[in-house]
Write a protein that binds this DNA or RNA. Structure first.
Lengths: 248, 248
DNA sequence: CGACTCGTTGACTCTCTTCAAGGATAGTGG
DNA sequence: CCACTATCCTTGAAGAGAGTCAACGAGTCG
């Protein structure tokens, strides 16, 4: 498997004295990151235990079953989370974008693997020390609980999708999810960038690459979407997409 | 739809002065309930805002989209959580058993509906007051975060099941899940009670009742399980079941 | 006892997968 | 700069697993 690469992390151990956080777009933009909604002194303490990590596409951030000794915050890029069956079947359980947490779970071991989709920047926190801080910063803890809540809601939507939606509905729902994410920064959205491969999309939707491809072709034929360049899709009829996503 | 009944809750508003919690098995047995691992004074405060709720099979505890003004702890019975598509397709996202939370999410509205599978007893907490307590009881908050973490892990397992497992593997996984739950109280397990209908199982596994039935028949034919009386299944070959559940 | 729900089984259908091949795209090296 | 190659995406044809439709048996309740 060419995509199963060893994790060669490029860590910047030197703190660069404050620079990383001050310039960080995540803190300002995202309403859900660890850092946003923290006062300066609290942020300072977080920063003191933080290191930054760079990942190239395909590199692994965490591995299912490994001791969960780190916790991350996505700064830039897209990360895919996935679980594997013994024979290699893969289910991608989520895509993380800037502002999202990676490894919130307070369990001993990671329940899934995480791999970079494109070039990724992460903030890394040692779990032990992070948990110590947690006890002293109730606001941070509440924030984590909120993030976990949101993830749970998303997980339930995804279960509905995986268990009960048709291929066409799955793909339409996926596009809408991407559109919503894009809209968090720029709205309204007519063009969305697709960072992940057809294979990734298929493993996220419980389909095959062929079925994803065919579904997209159908959406194009129906005039709901259009694709000019690679890795980018134009939304022509958002209402039709909504109807398709929910089985209209 | 006969199963979509109106929620006629039977609430005991009178606190019965301490009795409910002292006698409650949940607190002692379960490692994950709200009440366990709380000191007596904290427990006392929780109890003061608590009421108990009884539900008959099919009755609704919470409804998707409603304002999330209550939070529950399951005391006895089994509760199913589910989401619906516009045309009635249903996905059951989980079954709650004694000790589990219902409605942890700190969102404005419930993301799913919850219905009693059999006769159910719940402890009910008004969300506002509960959240106030939360700020003063860090231990409770940590506990909630832990519960949310566990739910997330379970949700990811379920996504893998829904997206990538065959019907046979789904049913085998389901039986193992039930066995594990039963084993939390009594181990080892050879006989498990199935509180839910085939229809519920189907909607949990993303299948139809017919396929669930056929899969169970196959497992019987293979000598992996046996069924003496209705609503109960004997595990004859746990190792074979494990292999089947993971695509061996 | 009859009506009802629930579970099982059978026959047929269909959506999605599998298998296979061709086309587009990007990166590489001469 | 352009052939060369690897990878990804698309499209087609055939096949399979699960769904749909239908009937029947068993238990349950009024």
């Amino acid at each position: 498997m060419p995509e199963r690469q060893v994790a060669r992390r490029v860590e910047s151990a030197e703190p660069r004295l404050g620079a990383p956080c001050d310039a960080c777009g995540v803190r300002a933009v995202s309403a859900v990151s660890v850092c946003s909604a923290l006062e300066v002194p609290e942020l300072e303490r977080l920063r003191s235990i933080m290191t930054t990590v760079h990942l190239e596409p395909g590199q692994t951030a965490i591995h299912e079953g490994d001791p969960a000794d780190s916790l991350f915050n996505v700064v830039s890029g897209t990360v895919k989370l996935f679980k594997l069956l013994a024979d290699g079947r893969r289910q991608i359980t989520g895509f993380l974008v800037p502002g999202d947490f990676l490894g919130i779970v307070l369990n001993e071991r990671y329940a899934y693997s995480a791999e970079a989709v494109d070039r990724v920047h992460l903030c890394r926190f040692p779990r032990r020390r992070f948990e110590t801080l947690l006890g002293e910063m109730p606001r941070l803890e509440r924030r984590l609980l909120g993030a976990a809540s949101n993830e749970l809601v998303a997980a339930q939507d995804q279960m509905l999708l995986l268990g009960r939606k048709t291929a066409q509905e799955k793909v339409a729902s996926f596009l809408r999810m991407l559109a919503r994410r894009t809209a968090r920064q720029r709205s309204p959205v007519t063009s969305i960038g697709i960072a992940m491969s057809r294979n990734d999309i298929a493993d996220y939707l419980g389909l095959t690459t062929e079925t994803v491809s065919r579904s997209l072709t159908r959406l194009k034929e129906a005039g709901v979407i259009a694709s000019t360049r690679r890795g980018r899709i134009e939304l022509l009829d958002e209402e039709a997409l909504r109807a398709l996503a929910e089985g209209g």
